[in-house]
Nucleic acid binder design. Structure first.
Length: 594
RNA sequence: GGCGCUGUAGCUCAAUUGGUUAGAGUACUGGACUGUCGAUCCAGUGGUUGCGGGUUCGAGUCCCGUCAGCGUCGCCA
C-alpha cells in the first residue's frame, strides 16, 4: 500500500502519528509562507500543511501543485491550532504537517473541477466522466447504488434465492422492443440479440426446478431514451415457483420496507397499498400515478350530457368523455396566457382539442368566458363535482377515453410540480394490479399482449377469455414509486391449453408460435411448475432513493439521448476487415436530391 | 419522426428596441502575503457568440437550415 490512511479517517486520536496519505489536490490555499491543501479521495478530505519549518525546497515544490494533481505525502497528524478547526470536515480538527511530498501524477488543467459549485453542462460532464465521477455527489450516489444492490442480494439470499447468470448473447424474439443485434462470425448472416430481459431464461430455470431465482441482470432495448430510460439498464430479476400473485407482492413489500429502513431510515407500513389498473386510469389517467398528492380526475360526462354548451354536450352524448381536474388555488397565478400555454401543451403532446376551464371566485362561483353557456345551477353542480373551493382552477378535457387520460395525467403531473403539491422528499410505494390481458393494435383489429404472451389471466377470467378478451384481466402487477414504474411482473401461464388460447387470440397460429417460442413450449411440456416473478428497475430505484431526477446520474457511464457514449464515442466505425469477416456490407443511405 | 428548451472566454453566466472596442465571476499566468479552509490583494492572458446561409447601413440578438445536449410525445410486450 502506498498509503497508511485514507483522507477521511484521521482525527485527534491520531495526534502525533506519522502517516502517509494519497489523493487528489482539491482546493489550494497558498499564503506565500505557508501552503494549505485539501487532499481528497473517495473517503473524504484532509487538510495538509506545508509550513516553512519543513524547508524551503518542500514549500517551493508544494507551490507548484495545481488542481487534480495526484500526490503522496508523509507527515505527522497534528491538532489544529485553537480556533482553526473546520467543523465542516470530519477530519477538521486535525491537519497533516507534511515532511515529504511526491507527485504521483501531474494533471493537465481540467476542463472543470469536482469541487466547483455550478455544475458544467451535461455533455462536458459525460465527455470527461472520470472528472465528473470524482464529484462528491456522484461518489455518494454510486456508493448508495452499491449499498442498495447489496441489500437486495442479502434479502434474497436470506429468503433462499439462487443467483444465476443468463446469457447476454441470445436469440432475437419478435415481440417487444427493438433488439440490439450482434453479428455472428461463425454463422455469417445470423445474429445474436442482446436480452431485453432474461424473461425466458428465468422461466426455464423454474421448469428446471430452481424454484427461487434472482439475478442483477443487464438488459438492452433499442428504443428512444428518456430521463428514466437508458438503452442498457439493470434489472433485479426475480422468479419463483409454486406461488401466487400474493407471494410476489409480499416478498417485494418486504424488500421495499427493508430498503426504506436501511437507506432512508424510513418506516413504511405494509402491505403496500394496491390499486387496480382500471381505478388508476379513472382516478389518475395513468398506470403509474404519482400518489404523493391528490388532484384526482373527476368524470362529469353525465352532467355534460344535459348542458347547452356544445363543447361539453356533443362529446358527452357521442360516447366520449368530459373529465377534469381541480388545480387547487391556481386561479390567481394562471392568467389567460398561462392557460393558453396549458392548452398548447395538451394539444401538442396528447392530441386534445383544447381545454375548458373555470376559475372559482371568492364566493365559490365558477367564472370563465364559457360560463355563459351554463345555467347557474349547472355551474354549481360542476363546482360540487370538482370539490371546487374559492381560488381553484378547474380544467376539463372533452375527448375519447385515451386522450382524456393522457391529457389530464399530463396536466396533473405538471401542476403537481408547479404548485408544489407534494413534499419532494416523500416516498410513496404502491402496487397497480389487474392489468388488462390485451390491448388493441393501433392499425388493425388485432389484440396485443399488454405484458408478454406468457402472462396468465386471472382464474375468474379464464372462462370468458375468448368471448371477451378486452375484459380479461391478467395476473400482472407493477410497483410504482412516486409516479415511476419501478418494477413489474406477472404470474406465467404453465398450462398448454391456456397458452394456445392466448396465442390464437394474439393472432398466432400454432406454427408461428412454435417457430417463435418452440424451445419454451417444449420446456413447458416437460413438467412446468406454476411460476411467476417480477423485475425491478435498479437504476430507477436508485434514482428515487437518491432523490435524483434522471437515471444517468446514478449510472457510472450512461449514454446520451441519442444513445452515444460521449467519452468513448461509441458507437463507432469498424475496420473493413472486421466487417468482411462477419459477411457484412454497409449500405450507405441514399442522399436525397435537393 | 414531431414539439419545446439550451448553445457567448477552459467553466458558470451577462450583454436594453438590432447599434461603438462582447462584459463579470471563476479557472489559468505573473506578483504580494505564515493560519487558510469557496483564502485575500494587485496585474495580465484568454472570444470564428456551435456550424452554414439569409435579412439589414449594421446581427450574439431577427429568419431559414444544420449539429450537439436536455425535456417530452410517438416508441419502450
Amino acid at each position: 500500500m502506498l498509503r497508511s490512511h485514507t483522507c477521511g479517517e484521521l482525527n485527534k486520536s491520531n495526534a502525533d502519528e506519522t502517516v502517509t496519505l494519497c489523493g487528489w489536490t482539491d482546493r489550494i490555499r497558498d499564503l506565500g509562507g505557508a501552503n494549505f491543501i485539501d487532499l481528497r479521495d473517495r473517503y473524504g478530505i484532509t487538510q495538509i500543511v506545508f509550513a516553512p519549518e519543513a524547508g524551503e525546497a518542500l514549500l517551493k515544490s508544494a507551490q507548484k501543485l495545481r488542481s487534480e494533481d495526484v500526490i503522496k505525502v508523509i507527515g505527522t497528524v497534528q491538532p489544529r491550532p485553537l480556533g482553526q478547526e473546520n467543523p465542516k470536515l470530519p477530519t477538521g480538527e486535525i491537519e497533516i504537517r507534511v515532511t515529504e511530498l511526491e507527485v504521483l501524477s501531474k494533471s493537465e488543467v481540467p476542463p472543470f473541477t469536482p469541487n466547483q459549485h455550478e455544475l458544467p453542462n451535461e455533455d462536458l460532464r459525460l465527455k470527461h466522466r472520470y472528472i465528473d465521477l470524482r464529484r462528491r455527489d456522484m461518489m455518494n450516489t454510486l456508493m448508495l447504488r452499491s449499498k442498495i444492490i447489496k441489500s437486495m442480494r442479502d434479502y434474497f439470499d436470506t429468503h433462499n434465492f439462487i443467483d444465476v447468470e443468463t446469457p447476454i448473447l441470445g436469440r432475437s424474439t419478435p415481440e417487444g422492443a427493438r433488439d440490439y443485434l450482434v453479428p455472428s462470425r461463425v454463422h455469417n448472416g445470423s445474429f445474436y440479440a442482446l436480452p431485453q430481459s432474461p424473461q425466458i431464461y428465468k422461466q426455464i430455470m423454474m421448469i428446471a426446478g430452481y424454484d427461487r431465482y434472482i439475478q442483477v441482470a443487464r438488459c438492452f432495448r433499442d428504443e428512444d431514451l428518456r430521463a428514466d430510460r437508458q438503452p442498457e439498464f439493470t434489472q433485479l430479476d426475480v422468479e419463483m415457483s409454486f406461488i401466487e400473485t400474493e407471494d410476489i407482492l409480499s416478498l417485494i413489500d418486504g424488500l421495499m420496507a427493508e430498503l426504506a429502513k436501511e437507506i432512508l431510515d424510513l418506516d413504511i407500513s405494509l402491505p403496500l397499498p394496491r390499486m387496480t389498473y382500471d381505478e388508476a386510469m379513472k382516478r389518475f389517467g395513468h398506470d403509474a400515478p404519482d400518489l404523493r398528492f391528490g388532484m384526482e380526475i373527476v368524470d362529469v360526462t353525465e352532467l355534460a350530457k344535459s348542458c347547452d354548451f356544445k363543447v361539453f354536450s356533443e362529446p358527452a352524448n357521442s360516447g366520449k368523455f368530459v373529465r377534469g381536474v381541480n388545480a387547487p388555488g391556481a386561479a390567481a397565478n394562471y392568467s389567460r396566457r398561462k392557460i393558453d400555454e396549458l392548452t398548447e401543451f395538451v394539444k401538442g403532446n396528447f392530441g386534445a382539442k383544447g381545454i375548458v376551464w373555470f376559475k372559482v371566485d371568492e364566493e365559490g362561483i365558477l367564472t370563465a368566458p364559457s360560463a355563459k353557456n351554463f345555467s347557474a345551477e349547472q355551474l354549481v353542480q360542476i363546482g360540487e363535482a370538482m370539490d371546487a373551493k374559492p381560488g381553484d382552477l378547474l380544467l376539463f378535457l372533452c375527448d375519447d377515453w385515451n386522450v382524456t387520460c393522457r391529457g389530464l395525467y399530463g396536466l396533473r403531473k405538471r401542476f403537481g410540480a408547479e404548485l408544489k403539491l407534494y413534499d419532494p422528499n416523500a416516498m410513496h410505494f404502491s402496487w397497480i394490479v389487474e392489468f388488462p390481458m390485451f390491448d388493441r393494435d393501433e392499425e388493425g383489429d388485432r389484440w396485443n399482449a399488454m405484458h408478454h404472451p406468457f402472462t396468465a389471466p386471472r382464474q375468474e377470467d379464464l372462462a370468458t377469455l375468448e368471448s371477451d378478451p378486452s375484459g380479461a384481466r391478467a395476473q400482472a402487477y407493477d410497483l410504482v414509486i412516486n409516479g415511476f414504474e419501478a418494477g413489474g411482473g406477472t404470474i406465467r401461464i404453465h398450462d398448454g391449453e391456456v397458452q394456445s388460447k392466448v396465442f390464437s387470440l394474439l393472432g398466432m397460429t400454432k406454427e408461428t408460435a412454435r417457430d417463435r417460442f418452440g424451445f419454451l413450449l417444449d420446456a413447458l411440456s416437460y413438467g412446468a411448475p406454476p411460476h411467476g416473478g417480477i423485475a425491478l428497475g435498479i437504476d430507477r430505484v436508485v434514482m428515487l432513493f437518491a432523490k435524483l431526477s434522471n437515471i444517468r446520474d446514478c449510472i457510472a457511464f450512461p449514454k446520451t439521448q441519442k444513445a452515444t457514449d460521449m467519452m468513448t464515442e461509441a458507437p463507432g466505425d469498424v475496420d473493413e476487415a472486421q466487417l468482411a469477416e462477419l459477411g457484412i456490407t454497409i449500405v450507405k443511405p441514399e442522399t436525397e436530391e435537393v
